[in-house]
């Protein structure tokens, strides 16, 4: 189940939308594809800042990594920014090792 929420800029049009998407406990093919679909949909509808929240995520497998790379690539092609938030230490290490942190901001 993907829980999504959108935080809208309060003051003016120049403040871009930020969409928050929460990842599941285990980021694998099944849950990863749901996230990918949702991210693409948000980017296509004009979202320029995408936050992937990993607060509930314990494990990310290789397919999950590949899907996240796809999301990063899509966002980059559309000029959108990707933020990973509330990532546990082990997953941060994995993201660093594989170079994902070169393309996203970890909050």
């Amino acid at each position: 189940m993907i829980t999504t929420s959108t935080t809208l800029g309060e003051s003016s049009e120049s403040v871009s939308d930020r969409s928050v998407i929460f990842a599941d406990n285990y980021l694998n093919k099944l849950s990863g594809e749901k996230i990918e679909h949702e991210c693409r949909r948000r980017i296509e509808t004009g979202c320029r800042e995408l936050e992937l929240n990993f607060a509930n995520t314990e494990i990310v497998n290789s397919i999950g990594i590949s899907i996240l790379l796809g999301v990063i690539d899509t966002a980059s092609n559309k000029g959108a920014r990707v933020v990973f938030s509330e990532v546990n230490d082990e997953t941060v290490e994995l993201f660093e090792m594989l170079g994902l942190t070169n393309h996203v901001v970890i909050e």
Partner: peptide, 15 residues
Amino acid sequence: RTSLHLISGALGIMR
């Protein structure tokens, strides 16, 4: 398709 994901995810390959 899954195989391509696994290679990409194993080594962090963009495309």
